[in-house]
């Protein structure tokens, strides 16, 4: 029986793979069915994941196992239920209270996190002497790193019109940003193609058994 379900699972996978690829021809009912199955399963997966990984370990278990020490967790539980009130139009305003807590927490956490990791740490990493140590290739690279970061930041300064010397500096920043976007695009394209190769390997290997593992 297990062998049957294993084979059935592979056929299911192959069917849904072809169903999604059928979109390359044109939008069709088979693709739409696969798309809706994906939406339903994704929502179901995240629902179950939330219950088992967030609600049970962080709320249900502490309250049921040691209520006297964890009674305060009743508050997020109430706020969570208040969040669900959003589904009913007449009581949707109640959800503002938990949303305000989530927004406040996110703002406080992000304020500090971005200040440290994305501003101070990045600025510190850029404040280097490019001419110390390394080959001439590395020196050129480090110079590019310093100039590229500074000019890129100048480009993102929109309170002053980009003209004259300021505009020229910002233009150099654009060049570095373009190289960065190009490299990111190249990596994304490669990642997608490797996924496509993975699908072909599944169809030709696991399903048709034409190629080996």
């Amino acid at each position: 029986m297990i062998q049957f379900f294993e084979a059935f699972g592979i056929w299911l996978g192959a069917f849904f793979t072809f169903a999604i690829f059928s979109f390359l021809y044109k939008d069709n009912p088979v693709y739409k069915i696969a798309e809706q199955v994906f939406v339903g399963l994704s929502a179901g997966y995240w629902f179950v994941y939330t219950i088992f990984s967030i609600i049970i370990p962080n709320l249900y278990n502490p309250i049921t196992q040691n209520f006297s020490e964890n009674w305060i967790k009743i508050i997020p539980a109430i706020l969570g239920v208040m969040m669900l009130m959003r589904l009913i139009p007449k009581t949707s305003w109640i959800s503002r209270f938990p949303i305000s807590l989530v927004i406040g927490t996110t703002s406080g956490v992000l304020f500090l996190r971005y200040l440290k990791s994305d501003v101070i740490n990045q600025m510190t990493a850029t404040m280097i002497n490019p001419f110390i140590g390394g080959s001439w290739v590395e020196i050129i690279g480090k110079l590019m790193l310093v100039i590229g970061t500074l000019t890129g930041v100048v480009y993102f300064y929109f309170s002053k019109k980009h003209e004259g010397a300021f505009g020229s500096t910002a233009r150099i920043g654009i060049y570095f940003l373009m190289i960065s976007f190009g490299a990111a695009f190249g990596y994304t394209a490669m990642a997608r193609i490797s996924l496509l190769i993975g699908r072909l390997q599944f169809l030709l290997g696991d399903w048709l058994k034409i190629i080996g593992p």
Partner: peptide, 13 residues
């Protein structure tokens, strides 16, 4: 180098 510079500018911005 150049990609890190671009990414860094984006991150700081």
């Amino acid at each position: 180098y150049p990609t890190t510079a671009g990414q860094r500018a984006i991150m700081i911005g």
